[in-house]
């Protein structure tokens, strides 16, 4: 399961506050909206991490849910027993194919979730940068005063 780069799903999980350096100084000096966004993003990131773990666990479970293959002589000899064996193998194969497809889908889910998580982290970093800017500005103002 590899995490594709560049991000396969690039989204804005929550709208981050705008860049404080481009906003009016009064609006940009409050850290509250940034902290709020950061908090929400952390919660969301936690949920996504949980889902990734859930997907991994499900892949493991699905992998362990494949029955053994039946032996050709299991049901006896002759036409009907052989047909039974053949149909049992056929059913086994169809179930197996479905499960493998599910595993593939799960792995795609995991990839998408990982991308989403990366994006959340990136947004959080951006917000952290904004916060640092604001705090730096406040420190400058405090120093001047």
């Amino acid at each position: 399961m590899t995490s594709p780069t560049p991000p396969t799903v690039a989204v804005t999980p929550t709208s981050p506050p705008s860049d404080p350096s481009t906003t009016a100084s009064t609006a940009g000096s409050s850290t509250e909206p940034y902290e709020q966004s950061q908090h929400e993003i952390r919660l969301e990131e936690e949920d996504v991490r949980y889902l990734i773990a859930l997907v991994d666990e499900t892949v493991r479970n699905v992998g362990g849910s494949i029955p053994r293959q039946v032996e050709g002589d299991l049901f006896g000899g002759g036409h009907l027993p052989e047909r039974m064996a053949r149909h049992t193998l056929g059913a086994h194969e169809r179930i197996l194919r479905t499960l493998l497809s599910s595993v593939q889908a799960l792995e795609e889910h995991a990839g998408s979730l990982q991308s989403y998580r990366d994006e959340l982290n990136r947004v959080e970093d951006t917000i952290q940068g904004y916060l640092d800017q604001i705090n730096g500005r406040v420190a400058t103002i405090d120093g001047a005063v």
Binding site: T8, V9, S112
Partner: peptide, 11 residues
């Protein structure tokens, strides 16, 4: 053509 009848997220 997502396999398994399960569409992956974003598919």
């Amino acid at each position: 053509g997502a396999a398994g009848g399960v569409r992956p997220i974003g598919a």
